[in-house]
Design a protein around this nucleic acid. Structure first.
Lengths: 228, 228
DNA sequence: TAAAAAAGTTAGTTATGACTAACAAATCTT
DNA sequence: AAGATTTGTTAGTCATAACTAACTTTTTTA
């Protein structure tokens, strides 16, 4: 048996930790995720995290030596990817069929991703005709757990005069997502960098015949593909 | 504020107890549901039930005096009805859109009914164009919690020569549901009672140009509307 | 109606997964 | 390299919700 992770019966908490660790590992380019960092991310005390890490270590999902950094086993990764698949498929369903907006989907998808049924998620995938991307532009892992990661070029990494296309946004903050829609940005919008102000690194951009000034922090959460 | 029950934050367990009690009260014609009966139904020890009943009493969902029978407050009923609404809408979705069969839906719907989002369930309802009945023939409460109960005439209560239409089946047992589909019965099937055998109360029935003998126990779980 | 059975309750235990407080190890800083 | 800071660990507590075992009340039935 190569991979039976989809029939493991993990608690909601265990799943949350595995997914969080997976996402931190990606954000940090697979290097050095610490216990407290994970605690922070999950808004939980370091002691709780330490406990859970021990548990997940005995279950062979997490690799960690005392006072050392955290990593996931292949099993652990596989579970995390399945959770991300479920999360993104549900988000897609909520947006495309149930009239949810960008900023409303996250909380509900957090609940739905813990529903245990292989058939449910694979049928949902089929029902939507195997979507490739979720409403935030993130790639959806397929039923075999194959997972590609979008190369994350932030808007803030570009230079004056560059032109790019919005391919994804960070879905961590409801307020950010609302803001993005309010100013009229959407996936695939073409954005031109007009000016980067030295003083506060704020950026004047142009899109859809509009001009707008955004902060550096904003631009850090917008992922783009350079066009020119 | 007349009714805000949909924003109460109950645990999965609390919800399970309320729904179970509601269903037992209906089965027993609203009379005399006991602690141990509830324990039995939920496959849990009487001590656990006793504990939870106390908790739900202080929260004003359950009515019960020491050594007395159990009942639900209006609040309690309202929560239970919302759970039943969610359960039946999800079952309908799974059957009609995700290729689930009769016997596969129950377990997944048990999980889905605990997802907390008013918008999710109301939009799902709209998406399916406000279905009236779930795949087992049971009525789906509407968004205002209005709930009608099917008059439950069992197949076993009819007499020789009667003709009836199958309107619902008990969804408690996977094996029963599989059996129903296997012999070719479905909602709206017209059934004629050919003979009731005195010896073991087994019943010879005719439907779709087939004849079949079913047991009394089987007939107890098939709900019909008398036609002739 | 008194004994037996059934139903309900209480007390005490367990597992999960949070928490705080106190402590230990590792890493910065100068 | 020593002290300070950050990071990680341990011990002990709490709430939830299950359990068993022992006990009490109610109901049945002989």
């Amino acid at each position: 048996m190569t991979n039976k992770s989809y029939l493991n019966n993990l608690t909601k908490s265990e799943e949350d930790y595995l997914k969080a660790l997976f996402q931190l590992l990606i954000e940090n380019d697979s290097m050095k995720v610490g216990n407290n960092q994970l605690a922070d991310y999950l808004k939980v005390s370091p002691a709780s995290t330490n406990n859970m890490v021990k548990k997940l270590k005995t279950k062979n999902y997490v690799i960690n030596e005392k006072y050392g950094k955290l990593d996931l086993t292949d099993e652990g990764k596989s579970i995390a990817v399945r959770l991300i698949r479920k999360h993104r498929l549900w988000e897609t369903f909520l947006c495309n069929y149930l009239n949810f907006t960008w900023d409303e989907v996250h909380d509900v998808a957090e609940q739905l991703e813990h529903i245990k049924s292989r058939k449910l998620i694979d049928e949902l995938d089929r029902f939507m005709d195997f979507p490739k991307k979720d409403p935030h532009g993130e790639l959806i892992p397929n039923a075999n757990g194959e997972y590609s990661i979008l190369p994350k070029v932030t808007l803030s990494s570009l230079l004056e005069g560059d032109v790019c296309k919005l391919i994804a946004v960070n879905d961590g903050s409801v307020n950010f997502l609302k803001y993005v829609s309010e100013i009229g940005l959407a996936l695939s919008s073409e954005i031109k960098i007009l000016e980067i102000r030295e003083f506060d690194k704020s950026i004047r951009i142009q899109f859809n015949n509009t001009e707008e000034t955004v902060t550096r922090k904003f631009a850090d959460n917008v992922f783009v593909k350079k066009v020119v």
